[in-house]
Design a protein around this nucleic acid. Sequence first.
DNA 1: CAATTATTTATACGCCCAATGAATTTACTG
DNA 2: CAGTAAATTCATTGGGCGTATAAATAATTG
Lengths: 231, 231
Amino acid sequence: MSAATSARVRPARVGRPNKDSREKDAREAILDVAEERFSRHGFHGVTVREVANAAHVNTALIHYYFGSKKELFDAVFMRRAEIINAERMAAMDAYAAAHGDGVTVEGAIEAFLAPVLTRLANGGPGWRNYFALVGLVNSTTAWGGEVMTRYFDPVIHRLIDLIACALPEASKEDLYWSYNFLSGSLTLSLAETGRIDRLSEGLCHSDDVEALRPRMIAYAAAGFRRVCEGK
Amino acid sequence: MSAATSARVRPARVGRPNKDSREKDAREAILDVAEERFSRHGFHGVTVREVANAAHVNTALIHYYFGSKKELFDAVFMRRAEIINAERMAAMDAYAAAHGDGVTVEGAIEAFLAPVLTRLANGGPGWRNYFALVGLVNSTTAWGGEVMTRYFDPVIHRLIDLIACALPEASKEDLYWSYNFLSGSLTLSLAETGRIDRLSEGLCHSDDVEALRPRMIAYAAAGFRRVCEGK
DNA sequence: CAATTATTTATACGCCCAATGAATTTACTG
DNA sequence: CAGTAAATTCATTGGGCGTATAAATAATTG
C-alpha cells in the first residue's frame, strides 16, 4: 500500500534479539531516536543516516521497518498520539460523568490538560521529546495544521463541547478562537525552547511542570470566560 | 567576519538594473522569496536553488549577496524585525506617556499587539509571511528560543514593565509565565496554519485579523489578571 | 537438524545540495 | 570613450542525501 515495496509491520517477534544485548527492539530504538531528532530539528533537519547512526543500526533497516523517511515520521507521530488521545478522552469523560450538570471551565480544561502534563512531568524523556515535536508541528505552516487535524480533532471537539456546557451563552466563534489561544499557549510550553528561561534570566524554567500547571489552567479559564461571556 | 569570503553589503546602486525590467532589486526579490519559503517549510526545508529559481536569479547571486544560506536566513529575519520592534516600542511609549499612572493590562497589551496586527492586516503578503516565519521559529526547539531572545527581548521587557505598573502586586514569575502564554497564542495565530479553519469547519479563518484582535486582547488580559492577581 | 522466515549488513546508485572562482556583462566615472 | 567597479552568470567541486538490492546472519519451525 505504502510508497516502498516492503515496510514490514513488525511480525510476531522472531529473528535474533539484537547483537549487543540491547534490551529494546531495534524498531523502538529507531523510533526513540527519530522522535528526539525530529522534535529538535524538524522533518527536513534530520537525515535517516543520522537516525541510523544514533540508534546503532544500519541505514537500510529504517527502510526495512518503515519504508521511507516520511513514513518513519508518521510512525513517530502516531505511536504516542493514540495513547494520549485515549487518556484525554477518558479524563474528560470521567469529569463529565462526575459533574454532569455542574461542569466548570476550569474543570474541563484541567481534565483536558491533566494527561499531557502528567506525562510531561513523569513520562521520561521520550514523552518530553514527543510533546516538543507536537509543539513544533502545530506551528508548521505547510502541513502542520493538517497533521494536527488528522490526529487531534476528536479530543478537541470533546473539550469544546464540555466548555460549551459550562458557558451555554458562548458562540461557536468565541469558543474556537479561545481554544486556538489555549492551543498556542500549550504547544509553546510543550516545545521547551528555553525561551522563558532566558527571558526571565533563570527565574522560570520551561520544564517546570508544577509551575506551569496551575497558571496555565487559570490563564486559559479566565480567557475563555472573558471572551465567551463578554464581561 | 562571516563564514564566506564575500557577502557584499549592497553598494551604492551600480551595475545593470536587471535584465528583464524587474522593478525591485534582485536582492530584495531574493529576500521576499526566501521569506515566503522559509516561513512555510523552515530553514532545512528550503534549498537555495529553489529560492534562486523562484526569484529568477542565478544561484551564485545569493552567495554573492548573503554569503551563505544561514546568513540569508538571518537577513530575512532581521529585515522586518527592526521595523516592527521600533513600532512596538513607540506604541508602548506613547501609551505609557498618555496614561502615565492609569495604565491598564488591556491597554498595555493592545499597544504591544497593535503594530503587529496592523501590519498583519494591511502590510501585504510580505509581512504575513514574515509573521508566519516568526511563529515557526518561536516553536523551534533547537535554536528558536535563542533567535527570539536575540531579536525580541527588549520589546517584551517593555511590555512586562508596563503590565507590572497595572498589576503592582504581581510576582515576576507570574508575569513571565503569563507572557509565555500570550506569546504562544500570538505566534500560533501568526503562523496561519489554517488549523482553526479546519477545526471550526470554515466558521473561523486564521487570516481574519478583525476577528482575532479583540478576542486576543480580551483573552490575554483576563489571563494576566487571573494569574497575577490570584482572584 | 534442515527448511524457513525474520532481521541485519554491505554496497551502491542516481540525484541534488551548498559553495566557489573565474569569466562575462552592465553601468557608472572621469 | 576608455577604465573601473558592481552585478550576474557559468561551470564545477566535493559531499551528503534518500532509497534500493542482494547477500549474510540469526532465530523459529517442522
